[in-house]
Write a protein that binds this DNA or RNA. Sequence first.
DNA 1: TATATTTGACCGTC
DNA 2: GACGGTCAAATATA
Length: 356
Amino acid sequence: MDDILSQVFDACSLARELESSLRLSNVPTDPHYLLGSCEEIVGAFNEAIHRLHARNMSLFHSQMLFGEAPSSQQDPGAGEGCSHGTGYMQVADLLRTPAVEAWRLEIKSAAAMGPSSYPGTPNTGVESLVGGGGEPRLGAETALSGRRADGSVPHRSSRTRKDAGTVTKRVPALRTGNMEMPPDDGYTWRKYGQKDILNSRFPRSYYRCTHRSYYGCEAKKKVQRLDDDPNTFEVTYCGTHTCQTSPTPILIPTLVPSAIGNNLNDNENDGGRQQGASPQSVSIRLPNWLDGNPRNTGTLLVPQSGAGGSTSRHVGQQQGGRDIDGSVAELADAMFNSASSGSSMDCIFSRRQRSL
DNA sequence: TATATTTGACCGTC
DNA sequence: GACGGTCAAATATA
C-alpha cells in the first residue's frame, strides 16, 4: 500500500508543480507544455490506479479515464476529506482544461475503436464490452425459473441466447491472494453453479445477485478464466441490478451532511447500477484510502483466503449472509460510510430480519 | 444455526 | 446428442 500512496503523492506533487509554474508564469502558457504536463499528471495517477487495480480497485480505472469529470458539487467534499486534497482538486481542475478535455475525448474515441488503439493509454483492465454495449438488461428471455416443488419444470431457457443484454468484460486477476477469484465488482454475488466448459481449461462459475430473494434482482454473471491468459477473467454480466445496494463507493465519512444527502440521492437515481455506472471522481474516493481505512470508501474488500469459497462481497451490505431491506440499505450505506462498525449493523439487520 | 458453496443431475437449446 | 445454464441436496463455514 505504501508504494501506491507514494505514487499518489508523486502525482499530487506533479500537480502542485504545474500549478506553481502556471501561477508564476507571466507569459501565456504553451498549450503543448500544458498538455504534456497534464498527461504526465494523469499518467502518474493512472499508475496509482493501476496499482490500486491490482488490489482489486477495478472500478477506479474506467472512471478515471473515461468517466465524467467530477461535478462541482462533489468537489468540495473531495478536498475536505483528505489532507492532500488540494492535489486532487488541482488535478480535477486540470482535467477540465480544454486541452485535457480534448485529450480525453481523443481517448474516448480511440477506446471506441478498440482498447489498444490508443497507444498512450494504459490498459484499463476493462478491456472489452461485448454485446449490448452499455447497460446490460435482463430480457424476458433470461432464464430464471427453476424446478417446482412437485418436480415439474416450468419454462426455462437454460441456454441463454447471446442477446444484446449481456456485457462481457475482462478483468485482471488479483496478483495477491486468491488467484481463483476475480476482482470484486461491488455487488454481492452468490455462486449457484460451476461448469466445465468445452475447450476451456478452467471451469465457468455462475453467480446471481445475493439480493435476488428480497428485491427480485435478476442480475447474474458468469466468470471464466481465459485459457490463454489465466491471469485474466472474462466476466459476463446478464441482467440489471434492481436491488437497493450500491456498487458505487459511497462518499466519505468526513463529508458534510448535504454531500451525503446528495450522494444518497444519486444512488436512488442511478437506476441501473451497472458496472462502471455512476462515475464518480477518483479525487473523492482516494482520500479514504489515505485515511487508512479502505472500508470507508465503500469500495471492496476481496477475501484473500480461499477457504470457504466465498464470493465477492460488498462491504457492509451483507450481514451473516442475509439480505437487507431497501429502506435499511440507505441507512446502512450512510452508517458504513461513517466508519461505523459492522456490529451496529448486526443489530439493525437481525432485528429487521426477525420482524419479517 | 443460518447462510454460502460445492457438485451431480436435470433440462432446454442448438 | 452435445453443450451450457440452473437446480437443489450435501457440505462447509462463520
